[in-house]
Computed example of a mutant assay.
Amino acid sequence: MPNTEYLKIPRERVGVVIGKNGITKDEIENLTKTKITIDSEAGTVAISPTEETEDPLSVWKARYIVKAIGRGFNPEIAVKLMGDETILEIINLPDYVGKNKKAVLRQKARIIGKEGRTKDIITDMTGVDISIYGKTVAIIGDMEQIHIAKEAVEMILSGVRHKTVYAFLEKKTRDMKIKQFHRIAKDETDLE
């Protein structure tokens, strides 16, 4: 079928995509006006437009929602990808640290931090959602938020001290708030 998107997700995440009695799959199909076909054994997913599909990006959005769930996000967070400004960024840890399992685990632990502190700080300061699953770090947010969060994660992966990463996040968050303030002030001025 034309415009059908295919992807593969971890088999252990197939049940989350389907949901209890198929409710999650049905919800994604209803939101995006698409048809989702899942091969539970292989972990393959096919997403096709339906006759009801109006938005040309619906299949693409459904694909990214399913991909986000496959990368460890719960469905409630993954459906944020329906927003026009919201995107999914996936960082493949072996690209940064090689295929050594211990190195990947060590870097995952550094990104999570003691009792989840580092992950929480990145999430709170940038406004993104982060999932650390398998050999990946997945981030959901708008372009500016993701850019800052990804840079913070890459700093950690390159061995930068957590304290330095937190200072970077504080500065970037402050800059982001100033930009927002100026945008709002400009919009209000334009309305007058």
Rank of each mutant, 00 (worst) to 15 (best):
I122H: 03
G22R: 07
K35R: 15
F73E: 11
E29A: 01
L7Y: 04
T136K: 05
F168R: 12
A62S: 15
K135I: 11
I23P: 01
V17A: 04
D55E: 07
N21T: 12
D187W: 05
F181W: 01
A167G: 06
L81K: 08
K25C: 03
Y64W: 11
D124Q: 13
K101M: 09
V153Y: 01
T123W: 01
H147V: 04
G141N: 10
V153H: 05
L93E: 01
E29Y: 14
K102C: 00
A152W: 05
L157E: 07
G159S: 01
F181K: 11
R106W: 13
A46K: 15
K80Y: 04
H182Y: 11
G19T: 13
L7T: 13
V16Q: 15
A152Q: 04
I77R: 12
N100C: 01
T118H: 05
I65V: 15
R117Q: 12
A185I: 06
V137G: 00
G116K: 12
R11G: 00
G70I: 05
G83Y: 10
I87Y: 14
Y133D: 03
A46V: 13
D84E: 14
A42K: 15
P49I: 01
K35S: 12
S158K: 15
L191Y: 06
E115K: 15
D129T: 10
